[in-house]
């Protein structure tokens, strides 16, 4: 543990905003630690390529107007990506059904949380479910318009910024914004197939985490379609129906 970046990590709190001095923006550190089971030089090459890839995709998103966290530090040789800390909550926990704990340990905390926020966790964010679903669709459309495929769309990989840390523009009237996170599996592609699969992955994620997801996903698609041209949307819609029939992987037969 001699590298400066590792010093920084050891002085940080896991999933917290430690380490950074006052006045500087809090930072989230995403550390791809060394995998001992891999040959060292392979591990270094892979880690470097992944950190570099994720950083490039984030910058591409920023330039295309997709809401993503800004990059604050990159140390590719240590596998570290430092990004802006988003004050808020992930969408999974804001939609019905998402609150259910994944591990037993969380039960207690979650129970406390839900009594605090009364019945509707969205109240603190001053938006309705429909507005939230609309934000998701719009953001995804911006992403795909820039030919970026997220690759791992779930409601856990979307965050809603807390209104207290967001200064809304006058026209939109929405007191918050949706931020896409985790571009570890992302890539650039112009193919309709890739965009349709991206949406399909999200549809499955909705179906598996949130009860009665069909109308919810439909309003996401509705907002998505509004940003695209009719032609673009038609192509993706047709392909999405195809993907639904056969699943995410293309048939290898023939």
């Amino acid at each position: 543990m001699t590298s400066a970046t590792l010093n920084l990590i050891s002085s940080s709190k896991p999933i917290s905003q430690g380490a950074e001095a006052a006045k500087s923006p809090p930072m989230l550190i995403k550390h791809r630690f060394k995998k001992k089971y891999r040959h060292e030089s392979l591990d270094t090459t892979l880690t470097k390529a992944r950190v570099a890839g994720e950083a490039r995709l984030l910058l591409r998103c920023l330039k295309s107007g997709v809401n993503v966290p800004q990059i604050l530090m990159v140390d590719a040789s240590e596998g570290v990506l430092g990004i802006e800390w988003i004050e808020g909550q992930c969408v999974r926990k804001l939609l019905p059904g998402g609150e259910e704990p994944e591990e037993g340990r969380e039960v207690f905390e979650e129970a406390e949380q839900s009594t605090l926020d009364a019945s509707n966790p969205l109240r603190a964010y001053r938006i309705t479910i429909d507005q939230l679903l609309g934000l998701i669709g719009t953001e995804l459309a911006k992403l795909h318009k820039a030919d970026i495929i997220h690759g791992d769309l779930t409601t856990s990989n979307m965050m809603v910024r807390h209104p207290s840390s967001f200064s809304p523009s006058k026209e939109s009237g929405v007191p918050t914004e949706l931020v896409l996170i985790d571009f570890g599996l992302s890539f650039v592609s112009t193919l309709v197939e890739d965009k349709a699969v991206d949406l399909y992955v999200l549809e499955r994620a909705f179906a598996s985490t949130h009860p009665d997801s069909e109308p919810m996903f439909a309003s996401v698609l509705n907002a998505y379609a509004k940003v695209l041209t009719t032609k673009e949307w038609k192509a993706i819609k047709t392909r999405l129906d195809e993907v639904r029939m056969r699943g995410r992987k293309r048939s290898m037969v023939g």
């Binding site: 570099a52 950083a55 984030l58 920023l62 800004q70 604050l72 990159v74 590719a76």
Partner: peptide, 9 residues
């Protein structure tokens, strides 16, 4: 700022 942070990659 992001461009500066990712300059090395």
């Amino acid at each position: 700022t992001s461009a500066v942070a990712m300059k090395s990659v």
